[in-house]
């Protein structure tokens, strides 16, 4: 559905060239749900905007829905749906009018467009607001209207740029419910950007992590976490027996750092343990055998934030400007 080779975008800002996207290769198969994850300014939105023909690539190629973005941008636009970061509805227009006209822009006839608009308004809980002007909608209602606008022509490939930014948790959950339902019904291929790692984690099957214009990881969230981060294990042993397990824990961490701090006669060790849930029971037994039984144990599964930290040495929330 999407194939890019060395896709690159440079911007000129005050006579200086800024390399926003540095030669990314992306392949997305039909039906996939892919999230571009990265801090603000990492290049994920720029990549998305090149794929949707809203920006011209500086170099490299991209084929979207079988059409080259540079050779036939209008052909690409006819085959995709796009929900941008801003609100797409004209402020003084009625909700229903904007939806119907959007359908007409994509070549739908008026009865199809009207039927589709009502169907979407109902499924997005906007049915009562169809004659309201856009300016009178709440933030969450406007965002749902944006989704309706993007879905009017039932695209087979849908791009969403930061779809849930600024939404409260309930509206976010709502939005995802609609996107997931549409995907289940129509097999739509979905590509989105987000800087919410929990969203990328729970909703996408595949996560492409972008940082400083490069793709630094591309896999399922589960595999990324298992391979790159490992579970966070914290064990406490009596202070007197700590020396007996130090070597043992060091080997378990497989070269990773083991931190320790002591308080109230207890030493607390913390380390990353790949496949922690599977290996922890055996580790406990070895500690027993070494004469240092664990007094408590805490095992935390990794997050994509941990993956990002492992890959870049930075926290996802710290942004790209470091």
């Amino acid at each position: 559905m999407i194939h890019t080779e060395k896709l690159t975008k440079n911007f000129t800002v005050k006579k200086e060239t800024v390399e926003a996207v540095k030669g990314v290769d992306i392949d997305v198969a039909p039906g996939e749900l892919v999230a571009f994850l990265g801090p603000n300014g990492a290049g994920k939105s720029t990549t998305l905007r090149m794929l949707t023909t809203l920006l011209r690539p500086t170099s490299g190629t991209a084929s979207v829905a079988g059409v080259d973005v540079t050779a036939d941008p209008a052909g690409v636009r006819a085959r995709i749906g796009y929900i941008g970061q801003g609100n797409g509805g004209g402020h003084s227009f009625r909700v229903i009018d904007e939806l119907v006209m959007q359908g007409r822009f994509y070549g739908m006839n008026s009865s199809d467009a009207l039927a589709r608009a009502h169907e979407l308004l109902t499924s997005l809980d906007l049915a009562d607001l169809s004659k309201r002007t856009v300016v009178k909608l709440s933030g969450g209602q406007r965002r749902r209207m944006d989704v309706a606008l993007g879905l009017m022509h039932s695209p087979r490939l849908l791009f969403l740029d930061e779809p849930s930014t600024g939404m409260d948790p309930q509206n976010r959950a709502n939005l995802w419910e609609h996107i997931m339902r549409m995907r289940a019904e129509h097999g739509t291929t979905i590509v989105l950007t987000t800087h919410y790692m929990d969203e990328a984690d729970s909703m996408s099957e595949r996560v492409i992590i972008i940082d400083h214009g490069h793709i630094i990881a591309d896999d399922t969230a589960g595999r990324l976490k298992a391979n790159l981060a490992g579970d966070l294990l914290a064990v406490e042993v009596a202070a007197g027996s700590a020396s007996g397990v130090r070597g043992l824990l060091g080997r378990a961490a497989a070269g990773g750092e083991v931190s320790e701090n002591s308080y109230d006669g207890v030493v607390r060790f913390r380390l990353r343990l790949p496949e922690g849930a599977r290996l922890a029971p055996a580790l406990l037994k070895e500690m027993d055998d070494a004469g240092a039984p664990a007094q408590s144990l805490e095992l935390k599964p990794p997050t994509l934030d941990d993956v990002f930290l492992e890959l870049t040495g930075r926290n996802l929330r710290e942004g790209a400007n470091r």
């Binding site: 023909t53 809203l54 636009r77 941008g84 801003g86 609100n87 944006d146």
Partner: peptide, 8 residues
């Protein structure tokens, strides 16, 4: 976001 929506 209207202009961008129309451009797309």
């Amino acid at each position: 976001g209207f202009y961008e929506r129309i451009l797309a």
